[in-house]
Design a binder for these strands. Structure first.
Lengths: 194, 194, 194, 194
DNA sequence: CATGAATGAGAGTTCATTCAT
DNA sequence: TATGAATGAACTCTCATTCAT
């Protein structure tokens, strides 16, 4: 059995998310994560190379799920517009359903150093590629303007979603993120369609 | 003469920007900033309460300039659309003209702890208010859709700009940020106008 | 096994006494104590909350022994006068037998800050209570004058002992402290008895 | 005019006593004393060699007065017993009349380093000599026991007074120190007389 | 004489990582 | 595999003292 499939691997990942969400990035010591996961400090180092590796793995594991679900959802959608709406909805819904994860990815993990963040960006590329795919498809099928620069469009889409979720987290969840799916989709589509 | 007007105050602020840009947030020790500014370590503490205070002041001073220039530029513009275009152009141009500052505000200062970031967000509000003002004016004058949610529109605008600059910084300035002013303005206006 | 029973706990306490005695309170750095104890700097902080905690613990541990031995010695003595003589003798003998400890308690630890000294005074109360007990017993059994104010008597007894030991330490041990047991007892008893 | 007679000299001495009494020894920075005395930091160093010199001078100046008054008071007294009673009364009365001074000499100045304290002890010798004189006179005139060891007697007298005042200070002046003059004199005389 | 801005040495504490058991 | 005691490098901040004005 691969090390990533053994129960303690996931225990540690989940403990890391909770500890970071509850204590903040700078107060998430390895020993605290270990205690939360119910293992000894040293055990962490059987499953992870070092602390950076835990944080990167947290993002990869959670982002993997996140992307998988979005991909599954948009797969059968008939048009780029439908796909974009589905992506926006899933983006908001998934984070609304797991506030701890939202805090960790939107606020805490961004306090990490260059190295971790560059690994995180690497992982994020899969998601940005999905967005790019939708934009390209939209342009090809004549739904979006042909003159649209794909990268700019993607930056607008991702930037808007990310800024919205960050606002929601920093406002301590005091508004209904899920409800924003529809208006944000419409706003973005308005900017993209011909 | 107020302490903020004495020459060493600005020397230290500028030294901090350079040291952080060149070494990264976590490698920007007070002693390094002092040496770069040409003062003794202890002198730092005549001008700043502590290290946090330096970092917050860096953001406030630089953001103050940033906002002042944008405000001056958009003041006379005839329509909300013109104002938005000017804001986008100024946002990109100012950061393109000072890559150190761009690195510090887009990457490094975001690694700071909760307290510093909440002070930074406070400072940022002035800028978000300018954007809100443009959106409200646009809606009032019938240039933007009346149904537009101001907060969502602001999130789209700021999110797009921020994501674009971050991309530029993380790509190590390998594309021409200034040149993106026009297409980004158009993209955003397309999403906002009726 | 409780942390106070593990060998390194006592090693560090003893190292602290020696380092303070040899270098003085203000030159007793944590790293010096650690090196003297044969442990790493960080190990100190497994056993003690901070530097203050080391100093307070030094006093408590050593004073604990000090008091325990005196209590055992005077327990079986038939009269308050005998008890007082035994206490004086033990007080002098114990400190004469451990000059390092005498320096630390009489001179160095008194340079500590308010917080440490108030903790030290707390610990000292056990000893003052023993003295009070002897005075009370002496008055009850008609050996000491009934009109004696217990607190004043205790202040005379403890003040005399403390001043004598301090003199001995400050004269760099150039007279025989043990030999003073008898005359000091007699002097005090002369002042207390009817 | 000698430097010690110029007004700022005494201003600084008095400021030091107040600052130490109110803030504690470790919080009595030179700059705080300067501000309290209404002079610039640098001015301190015109009147005193360094910080140690201030502290030693505080003790010398105040102790000088203290001793002068006691000496004047006991001069005319007919017997050693009267002299001792007068000394005890004056010791308590003077400190009771100046709580700041009491705090500084009994608690705060004792936190100073070896060097300062050895200078303080030097100054104190004048006072101990007065006590010795009384003891010697008492023995010569047959009022005190001839077998009395002068040094021990002095240690008992000074130790008792010092411990009593320290208790008073540490109990935050909650009992009437002046009232203790009579019982303490009697207690001591009881121990000394034949 | 007086000022006060500037200096710079010095130490307590944290925590990721290791390794003997 | 799992443990957890032990390690030790690294950095902010204070404050007595100086000296140009």
């Amino acid at each position: 059995m691969s090390i990533k499939e053994r129960p303690k691997y996931k225990q540690i990942i989940d403990a890391a998310v909770e500890v970071i969400a509850e204590n903040g990035f700078h107060q998430a010591q390895v020993s605290k994560i270990a205690k939360h996961a119910g293992v000894a400090d040293g055990t962490i180092y059987i499953y992870f190379k070092n602390k950076e590796d835990i944080l990167i793995s947290v993002f990869q594991e959670k982002m993997g799920d996140f992307i998988r679900k979005i991909r599954a959802e948009i797969e059968g959608k008939p048009s780029a517009a439908n796909k974009l709406s589905a992506l926006v909805a899933m983006h908001f819904n998934q984070l609304a359903a797991d506030q701890h994860l939202a805090v960790v990815t939107q606020l805490e993990l961004r306090q990490s150093n260059k190295n971790i963040r560059s690994q995180i960006n690497e992982t994020l590329k899969d998601y940005l590629n999905i967005i790019d795919g939708i934009v390209i498809e939209g342009k090809a099928h004549g739904v979006f303007r042909e003159t649209l620069d794909t990268r700019l469009a993607r930056q607008m889409i991702f930037g808007t979603l990310d800024e919205t979720v960050s606002n929601w987290v920093m406002n301590e969840f005091h508004f209904d993120l899920t409800a924003l799916g529809k208006p944000v989709s419409e706003l973005l589509l308005n900017g993209l369609t011909r």
